[in-house]
Each structure stands twice: as structure tokens, then as C-alpha cells.
């Protein structure tokens, strides 16, 4: 319980590093970008209060923005994702609620639940991000295609990371 805070801080730095140094420079086939840093918001413990979640989302987005030179679009998207997280969690809650001291990982929940939970948050985040980035509705279907393809890629990366790190059930 005590080492949850350092664990999350380390995870924050690792994910920001991966995003900024590797993924921002490795785009697949032109317009698809994965944004794996959203995994940090996904993996925060269930007990995180909503207001703290919002502030963490804001800071995470701002950090990515500063390093990508895209001031505030990641902040807008990540704050929205952080706001949406408690609602998504209620939507997918198991019959007897979430057990305390567990986190939304493959260690405690099955693969199907993880996929549903991740995909919804990733879709919310990416839709907001790409729409705010373009800031207009011309070429809407082009943006839509970018949203869908990038969401699929990010979700796959998130599922792979869950399988790698939390498979020991």
C-alpha cells in the first residue's frame, strides 16, 4: 500500500519517456500515432479521488504537451479522459463492486474487462485529441480515420503491456 505512490511516479516517468523519445518519432504509415502515456491514467488505483485524478490528468497532459511542442491539446484530452474514468468504471463495474486495494490490471480482472475498459477511455482521449488538434470540421472523415486507427494501435500496445507485466495471475 505504501509503495503505490513511488510506483506510480516511476510509471509516470517511464511512460512519458517512452512517449516522447520513442513513439513521437516512430509513426506508422503516415498519420497513425500511438499515445501510450494514457496508460498512466488507466492504471491509477481505484481509490484515487476524482479531483486528484483530474489534477493528475492535467499535469500528465501538460508534460506531454511541453515535450511535443503541441501546447495544451494533450492537456485538454487527458483531463477529459481523467474526468471520464470514474464513469467508465461505474459502467463496467462487476456485480459486487471493485475490491479495495486492487488496481485495474490483468492481475485482478480478466482480459475482456481490461479490453473494454481501455478501449473506451482510449477512444474518448483520442477523439478529443485529434478533433482539438485540427480545430475544425473540414476533412472530418480523414480525422475520423486517424482517430480509429490510432486508437486501435494504442489499445493494442496497452493490452500487450498488460500481458507482459501483469500476466502472473
Amino acid at each position: 500500500m505504501i509503495n503505490i505512490i513511488p510506483q506510480n511516479i516511476i510509471r509516470f516517468f517511464v511512460l512519458v519517456f517512452i512517449q516522447v523519445v520513442i513513439l513521437n518519432n516512430l509513426q506508422f504509415s503516415g498519420f497513425v500515432n500511438p499515445f501510450i502515456y494514457i496508460l498512466f491514467i488507466l492504471l491509477l488505483p481505484f481509490e484515487t479521488p476524482s479531483w486528484l485524478l483530474l489534477i493528475i490528468g492535467f499535469i500528465t497532459g501538460l508534460t506531454i504537451d511541453i515535450f511535443s511542442g503541441t501546447i495544451a491539446i494533450h492537456t485538454i484530452a487527458t483531463t477529459l479522459a481523467a474526468y471520464a474514468r470514474p464513469f467508465v468504471l461505474t459502467l463496467f463495474a462487476p456485480r459486487d463492486g471493485y475490491e479495495s486495494r486492487t488496481s485495474p490490471t490483468l492481475k485482478y480482472y480478466d482480459l475482456l474487462w481490461i479490453i473494454r475498459y481501455s478501449v473506451v477511455i482510449v477512444l474518448i482521449h483520442h477523439s478529443c485529441l485529434f478533433l482539438v488538434e485540427v480545430f475544425r470540421f473540414s476533412g472530418f472523415f480523414y480525422t475520423l480515420l486517424r482517430i480509429i486507427l490510432s486508437s486501435i494501435l494504442t489499445s493494442i500496445l496497452i493490452i500487450i503491456s498488460q500481458l507482459l507485466f501483469y500476466k502472473n495471475k
Binding site: S50, L54, F58, G61, I71, I76, F135
Partner: peptide, 22 residues
């Protein structure tokens, strides 16, 4: 509704930065 208010406040801050930046 403190969470909703905080959310709106943070988004307003972020949008303001974006628009000024643009």
C-alpha cells in the same frame, strides 16, 4: 459537484493556453 467544477476550470485553463498559443 466539485469534481465537475474542477473539470470545467481545468479545461478552460487548457483551452485558454491553446487559443493564446494559436
Amino acid at each position: 459537484y466539485h469534481v465537475a467544477f474542477l473539470f470545467v476550470a481545468l479545461e478552460v485553463v487548457a483551452f485558454t493556453i491553446t487559443i493564446q498559443n494559436n
